[in-house]
C-alpha cells in the first residue's frame, strides 16, 4: 500500500481534477472543450489501468501463458473513446457556428452581446 502501487489512480484523479477545473474556470469555449477532453481521458485511465496485469498477456488459451489481462475494459474504453470523439466533434462544430454568428469564442463577450435583447423574439 504505497504511493507507487497507486500511481495510476493518483494520475487519474489528478487528470480528472485538472480537466474539471479547466472546464469550470476558463471562459474560452475551446479551452473548456480541452478541459472536457482531459476529464474524459482520465476515465479511460480509470478503466484501463486495473485491467492490466504486469506480465499478463492477451486472453489466448495456451499452455505457455498463466496470467491474462482483462480485455473487457479495453473494449469498453474503445466505445467510450468513440463517444468522446463524437462529443468533441459536436462541441467544436457548435463553437464554429458560435464564432460565425457572434464573432467571438469568449463566454463573457457572448453573454454581453446577447444582453438586452428581448427573450426569444426571433424573426
Amino acid at each position: 500500500m504505497n504511493f507507487g502501487s497507486h500511481f495510476s489512480y493518483a494520475m487519474t484523479v489528478f487528470l480528472m481534477m485538472a480537466g474539471l477545473f479547466v472546464v469550470i474556470a476558463r471562459g474560452n469555449l475551446i479551452k473548456q472543450l480541452v478541459g472536457l477532453g482531459i476529464l474524459q481521458t482520465s476515465v479511460y485511465l480509470l478503466y484501463i489501468a486495473p485491467g492490466k496485469l504486469i506480465g499478463g498477456t492477451a486472453p489466448i488459451i495456451s499452455a505457455q501463458f498463466q496470467i491474462y489481462s482483462n480485455p473487457l475494459p479495453h473494449v469498453l474504453i474503445l466505445t467510450a473513446i468513440v463517444v468522446g470523439v463524437a462529443t468533441l466533434a459536436l462541441g467544436l462544430a457548435l463553437v464554429v457556428r458560435i464564432r460565425e454568428t457572434y464573432d467571438t469564442i469568449e463566454e463573457d463577450e457572448i453573454l454581453a452581446r446577447d444582453h438586452g435583447e428581448p427573450a426569444h423574439d426571433g424573426a
Binding site: L20, V23, L29, L36, Q40, G91, L94, I98, T101, D114
Partner: peptide
Amino acid sequence: RALVAAYQYLIMGSI
C-alpha cells in the same frame, strides 16, 4: 442563442 444553449448543455451534460 440556441447555439450557446446547446453548447452549455453539451458541457454540463458531458460532465
